[in-house]
Design a protein around this nucleic acid. Structure first.
Length: 458
RNA sequence: GCCCCGUUCGUCUAGAGGCCCAGGACACCGCCCUCUCAAGGCGGAGAUCAUCGGUUCGAAUCCGAUACGGGGUACCA
């Protein structure tokens, strides 16, 4: 998804077109539903596509399993011009061959046995033997200037004769990708660095077809805490999992962008639009980056606090089920500086929406406050609220602080009694605001209930 | 094994020969603010710029070797 983000940003930053193509050529790994999950993830992050599934476009269809005729047609061309050949070697023989090569300390590459026996291979295919089409890598050297890494060169002797068409008739990524990128007029291939060793093979295909190759930019991979490549097959969370955890999409986008890209200024908090204005491939760092969720958390809090109050109130709706828009708008000013993720709102808001939950083991009165002082404070608070003190909580707070002061208790310690009484916790949203929010009746009930817990109080 | 890419504070990074005995952010610690907790402000600690050798008056920046890390080496993408 980070790579998709860089593609999207590169397109938006340069006025280009962002095209989405589904590469589903491996039938063995096909999972129904995963395609929709990818589309939903992109949409949640705000990465809209100009051409692709569901919306179509001039290069439809955008799903490779629907384009197999094209691949076979182009594969035939490669055979005709001698850039590819059929191979009937069995998996068992290939494995044996590689084992021998490994034992001899040589690179494992197809030995081109079938290239030397075209007649027999043709006869075997005629008789129904399974066969794959292999790319014939020409001798020489392949070089390109990577947009992120500069010049990269491979000796073609290092390259394997890649399978282009599998036994089931489907193309491999190598063939389908090149054919489609040309057919869809792709100008920039921005993909992860794990593709670097495949690029000379692709370049060789472009040359065989006589096509102008696109520009290549290989972005660094993202590593997990263990230092290994984070991928859908290992370690990485499903993107939508972050939504379930209460992260804002803009925070996740921001965190992903900072994994390998920097603005060059000291600014680091951006939304998608801000990134699109500033992004450029030449500011992408080629070194792999370790994903640190603490950075995401920090950005998440920042993005939440950047949201206008009304918008945060809307965003919170799924996290505060059963609340009205008015309730949420009243809560937001108290919550927004205290949450890192949206899901944390529920815990803070609970005592304001229903009854406070006193923990079983709650110390009451809290430390540094004796029972007599706590009783006096609660009695005074009851009188204040009964006398309409909630109309001016600032003044009320000062008078109650004076009560504590007379008994030699610091307000910061003594007020914990009120936090316990109103919120059921020694910490939480500002307690006088909480009283105002729940109203005098609920406030009095909670103050009296807390007072009862103290017993006689002297 | 072989090939490729990479290597600046714990993490993400700035840095394209003198502005750097290296700047920012996160995390950590302290102080301030303060009705709690946060948020915010200020400050601190934290990197012999992987190592060695070259080039140069001068190198984190250029070159080479080594080490380490990552990626690839599939009828997966």
């Amino acid at each position: 998804m980070r790579t998709a983000l860089f593609n999207w940003l590169a397109a938006r930053a340069t006025g280009g077109t962002f095209l989405l193509r589904v590469e589903d050529t491996d039938q063995a790994r096909y999972h129904p539903g995963s395609e929709m999950q990818i589309l939903d993830s992109l949409r949640w992050l705000g990465l809209d596509w100009d051409e692709g599934p569901e919306i179509g476009g001039p290069h439809a269809p955008y799903v490779q399993s629907l384009r197999t005729d094209l691949y076979r047609l182009e594969a035939d061309r490669l055979v005709q011009i001698g850039a590819a050949y059929w191979c009937t070697c069995t998996p068992a023989r290939l494995e044996q061959m590689r084992a021998g090569q490994r034992a001899a300390g040589r690179p494992t590459r197809y030995d081109r046995r079938c290239l030397g026996r075209r007649e027999e291979v043709a006869a075997e295919r005629e008789a129904g033997a399974p066969a794959v089409l292999r790319q014939l890598i020409p001798p020489g050297r392949t070089e390109w200037v990577d947009l992120i890494r500069g010049p990269i060169a491979f000796d073609n002797a290092e390259l394997d004769d890649q399978v282009l068409l599998k036994g089931d008739g489907f193309p491999t990524y190598h063939l389908a990708n090149v054919v489609d990128d040309h057919a869809m007029e792709i100008s920039h291939v921005i993909r992860a660095e794990e593709w670097i060793p495949s690029t000379p093979k692709h370049l060789s295909l472009y040359a065989a077809f006589g096509w102008q190759p696109p520009e290549f930019a290989h972005v660094p991979v993202v590593l997990g805490e263990d230092g290994q490549k984070l991928s859908k097959r290992r370690g990485a969370r499903d993107i939508l999992e972050y939504r379930r955890l209460g992260y804002l999409p803009s925070a996740l986008v921001n965190a992903m962008a900072l994994l390998g890209w920097s603005s060059g200024t000291e600014e680091e908090v951006f939304d998608l639009a801000g990134l699109a204005e500033r992004f450029s491939l030449d500011r992408v760092n080629p070194a792999p980056a370790v994903f640190d969720v603490r950075r995401l958390d920090a950005l998440s809090g920042l993005h939440i606090r950047r949201l206008p109050m009304a918008e945060l109130a809307d965003q919170l709706e799924p996290w505060l089920p059963g609340t009205s828009a008015e309730q949420r708008e009243a809560l937001v000013p108290l919550l927004r500086e205290r949450i890192t993720r949206l899901d944390e709102a529920a815990g803070l808001a609970t005592p304001l929406l229903g009854e406070p939950v006193w923990p079983e083991d709650a110390a009451f009165p809290p430390k540094k406050v004796d029972a007599a002082t706590a009783a006096e404070l609660l009695d005074a608070a009851v009188r204040e609220v009964e006398g309409g003190g909630l109309a001016d909580t600032v003044a009320m707070r000062e008078r109650l602080a004076a009560v504590l002061d007379q008994r030699g208790t610091k307000p910061r310690d003594g007020f914990r009694v009120l936090y316990m009484a109103i919120l059921g916790s020694p910490q939480g949203v500002p307690v006088f605001d909480a009283m105002e929010l729940i109203g005098p009746a609920a406030t009095l009930a909670r103050l009296r209930s807390a007072r009862e817990r103290l017993g006689n109080g002297d």
